[in-house]
Computed example of a mutant assay.
Amino acid sequence: MTERQKRQIRERLKERVAVLTIRAEQADLTLANCPDESDLATEITRHNLDLALREREHRELREAEEALKRFDAPDYGLCEDCGGPIGTARLLARPSTRLCVCCQAEREEPALSAA
């Protein structure tokens, strides 16, 4: 990985942390007052979807912050399962990833088989 690519990855991590932090601060998860049951059901569904999105973004924020902390460590960019290098293109696309493509596929395979 070149120094330029490292700078790009670090900047993407910082940008993602900033965006997700702003979204978390602006989150409005209140239920509106609904005049009837169907409006209430719609509002509850919207609320549950918003809540799931916020939880996902919070998890992504944690992952990005952790990646920034370990960025300068010698093992950043190495797969946690096999120890091999994670491709630069993968790190540019998802800087917080901890697994190479092969190991990620192995982890997802049982879940896909069960579905």
Rank of each mutant, 00 (worst) to 15 (best):
Ala64Ser: 05
Thr21His: 05
Ser96Ile: 07
Arg59Gly: 09
Arg12Cys: 06
Glu57Gln: 06
Leu99Pro: 02
Asp36Met: 10
Cys100Thr: 02
Thr21Tyr: 07
Thr42Glu: 13
Glu15Asp: 15
Cys82Arg: 02
Arg7Asp: 11
Glu37Trp: 14
Ala111His: 15
His58Asp: 14
Cys103Ile: 00
Ala114Ser: 15
Leu51Glu: 13
Pro74Asn: 06
Val19Arg: 10
Cys102Met: 14
Pro85Arg: 08
Pro110Ala: 08
Val19Pro: 03
Glu37Arg: 10
Ala32Phe: 12
Pro95Asp: 03
Asn33Ile: 12
Cys100Trp: 02
Glu25Thr: 09
Cys34Phe: 02
Pro110Asp: 06
Gly83Tyr: 01
His58Trp: 11
Leu78Gln: 04
Ile9Cys: 02
Asp72Leu: 07
Leu53Asn: 11
Cys82Trp: 04
Val19Met: 10
Glu63Val: 07
Val17Lys: 07
Ala24Thr: 03
Ser113Phe: 13
Ala24Asn: 08
Thr30Val: 09
Ser38Phe: 09
Thr45Lys: 12
Glu60Gln: 14
Leu99Ile: 01
Arg4Ile: 13
Gly87Ala: 10
Ile44Gln: 11
Cys34Met: 01
Thr2Asp: 15
Glu43Trp: 01
Asp50Cys: 04
Gln5Pro: 03
Arg90Gln: 01
Ala93Asp: 00
Leu40Phe: 09
Thr42Arg: 12
Ser96Asn: 08
Arg23Met: 11
Thr42Gln: 13
Ser113Val: 15
Cys79Ile: 03
Ser38Pro: 00
Glu66Val: 06
Met1Lys: 03
Arg62Ile: 12
Arg62Asp: 13
Pro95Arg: 05
Ala115Gly: 15
Glu43Cys: 03
Glu63Trp: 01
Arg90Pro: 05
Asp28Trp: 05
Ala111Phe: 15
Ala18Tyr: 07
Leu20Ser: 00
Leu49Thr: 13
Leu13Ser: 05
Leu78Cys: 03
Leu61Cys: 05
Glu3Gly: 10
Pro35Leu: 13
Gln104Val: 08
Cys102Arg: 15
Ala32Thr: 14
Thr21Trp: 04
Arg54Cys: 13
Ala105Cys: 01
Cys103Gln: 02
Arg90Gly: 05
Arg62Phe: 12
Ala27Leu: 08
Glu57Met: 03
Ala18Gly: 08
Glu60Asp: 12
Asn33Val: 14
Leu78Ser: 00
Arg70Met: 08
Glu55Trp: 10
Arg98Ser: 06
Ala27Cys: 10
Pro35Lys: 13
Thr30Met: 10
